[in-house]
Simulated assay, not measured.
Amino acid sequence: MTRLIVAAGGGGDAVAAAMLHAALYGDDERAVILTYAWDRLLVDPLPGPRGPHDFTGLEPLTRSVLSVPPQARPIPPADSTLPRLAAELPHTLALLDPHHGAQGITRQLEELVDHLTPRSVDLLDVGGDILAGGDEPTLKSPLADALTLAACAQTNTPVRLLIAGPGLDGEIPPDDLRPLLGPHIHTFTTADTTSIAAVLDWHPSEATAMLTATARGIRGTCEVRDAGLPVSLTDEGPTVHEVDLDNALDRNTLARSVMTTTTLTEAEAYSREICGFSEIDYERDKAARLKQQPPAKPDLASVLFRLDEFQAEARARGVTHTTLRRLSEVLRLGGSRRDELRSLMVSARPEQYVAPLWRIA
């Protein structure tokens, strides 16, 4: 008997799932975390999610589900954080494959439930954009969440939908989310973050980084993403709430539309129709731009000069913190150099690294 946790949106939700499992279920049990290999150009230079054909060394769990052990490797030029996560988290990571649409994910879920007979099945979303209607002007990445929600709604087993860190993904304002949240399940504390502390030193997830930061008591305004979106770090940040899954499906037009899809291409077309865009199209365009703009070499003097310029502008905007992902964008350093950037900056300005965020001086 084990727990099954579905990470609604990708690798960041998988990290949060490990913290949630430790907080709610303890360290004695182990979970299977079903998650996308979708690093959104932060690590992987290829747009969109990776599938089983993009890896070597995956291991079968069921007919349609493969696990990602530490020794698995993405096939270049693809890259993925999942093998390293598998090495550092005490859980089994299973590869969620959206290339067969919501129907394929539903099949994966049903096979896992039959195989594991789990004590519980949780669908976890950090931020709450899984509750989006589809027309929100700040919505950026609805497709991954819509597919997992659609699949969980069709699975013949009870699934509990949990929202951690309401509003921390910057996609739905907290004031709009608040009326949609159900019972309070947990508030993360500093002690809860211990289980993922080492992972967040290198993992690029911004929402889970801010979830962890708020659990550690950090408050203020955090600037994130390439667009510099401001996200408020408040007492609501470390909370976890349950939401009725059927109510979420009623709200999420895209999730209802993709329920019968059998390919990712089909699901992506629904996203363009309903939301006015496809997040994978955005990644395709950005990947093409990045090819024309190779990342700069992280020279200490030039990095600190650009950092000081950015910090002065950020202070004027009322920003108190930012993420290493945001800094890598500002400093024109590729995501592959994130570890190098962190090491360089922490050695130069250790007092500003309030893990896992950067404090604006």
Rank of each mutant, 00 (worst) to 15 (best):
D145M: 03
A146T: 10
A146Q: 05
L147C: 07
T148F: 00
T148C: 08
T148R: 03
T148Q: 03
L149V: 08
A150Y: 00
A150N: 02
A151R: 10
Q154V: 03
Q154K: 12
T155V: 14
T155W: 01
T155G: 06
N156E: 15
N156M: 14
N156S: 15
T157C: 15
R160G: 08
R160W: 03
R160T: 15
L161K: 14
L161M: 09
L162K: 08
L162A: 01
G165T: 07
G165M: 02
P166D: 07
G167K: 04
G167C: 11
G167S: 01
P173G: 05
P174N: 00
D175R: 13
R178G: 09
R178K: 12
P179C: 07
P179S: 05
L181G: 05
G182V: 12
G182Y: 11
G182H: 11
G182Q: 12
H184N: 12
H184T: 13
H184M: 13
I185N: 09
H186G: 07
H186Y: 13
T187D: 12
T189K: 12
T190K: 09
A191L: 12
D192T: 07
D192K: 00
T194E: 14
T194A: 13
T194N: 11
S195I: 14
I196D: 02
I196L: 02
A197Q: 06
A197S: 13
V199S: 02
V199K: 00
L200I: 01
L200K: 00
D201N: 13
D201M: 04
D201H: 13
P204Y: 13
E206K: 07
E206D: 14
T208S: 11
T208H: 05
T208R: 06
T208Q: 06
M210P: 05
L211K: 07
T212W: 08
T212M: 13
A213N: 02
A213G: 12
A213P: 09
T214V: 10
T214R: 05
